[in-house]
Design a protein around this nucleic acid. Sequence first.
DNA 1: AAAGCACCCTGTACGC
DNA 2: TGCGTACAGGGTGCTT
Length: 274
Amino acid sequence: MPELPEVETYARDLDRLLRGCTFTGARVGWPAQLAGEDPGTFASRLSGRQVRGVSRRGKLLVFQLDDGALVLHLRMSGRPIVAGAGEPVDPHAHLVLDLAGGRELRLRDPRKFGRAWLVADPETVLGRLGPEPLDPAFTADAMARRLGARRCRLKPLLLDQEFVAGLGNIYVDESLWAARLHPQRRADEVGRPGALRLHAAIVDVLRRAVAARGSTLRDGGYRDLTGNPGEMQGSLAVYGRAGAPCPRCAAPIRRIVVAGRGTHLCPRCQRPRR
DNA sequence: AAAGCACCCTGTACGC
DNA sequence: TGCGTACAGGGTGCTT
């Protein structure tokens, strides 16, 4: 569930809470979440490591340690929680990392898709990610050039983390609506004007979503570290709004399936070709 | 290169 | 109310 804005919110809050803290142990309830590593080895390697800072790359959380890094991917249902060691542990918190001083970093993840890596160099996990959309290096010119080299549809291309890092289903749909581009348009057919609109739309949508601390679509959906919902859901134009009026032209929003993913668009603003 | 599918898991929403 | 089914904000691996 968490995309770039939600993970950015976690990273900022975790950095404030955990910078300077030391891990003292780990309990692993679902070993597959360690990507093959032995739980005992993981726990002993993590013990004694101090958190230098917490940041985000794409949809991944990066805990820079005094030696190496802990990288977390929350995938569909992951949510980090910082709690006192005495507080009741949610049955879905399969990964619990002990902190000196009586606190714990817990990973609540009902679907168990989340992954944790303890690596010497975070680039071993992050190395294939595409550009950061909120970084100045993500330019409209580069966007136009790279779109022109691809013949696939816009929707799966924007979901591809090697093309651009951090976008997921919500913010791809929102960006395509803002840019007035149909999700099934071929990337090399949008032209320079389309590429410039798409670049501006991605940056604008993500900036607003970060400022709003993410989108919470339903109960049981995204919550920040404290359990509070985001505020972006009220500003979404198309995602989850099938049948509701387009904010721009009032035509009913439509939901279709593109590349196996639910996709929301305005059939009037986003024509298959224009 | 691009597209389609199975798969990894469980909770929730919805139709009957 | 209970039950079956489809679907979910992510990603990988394989085949065509």
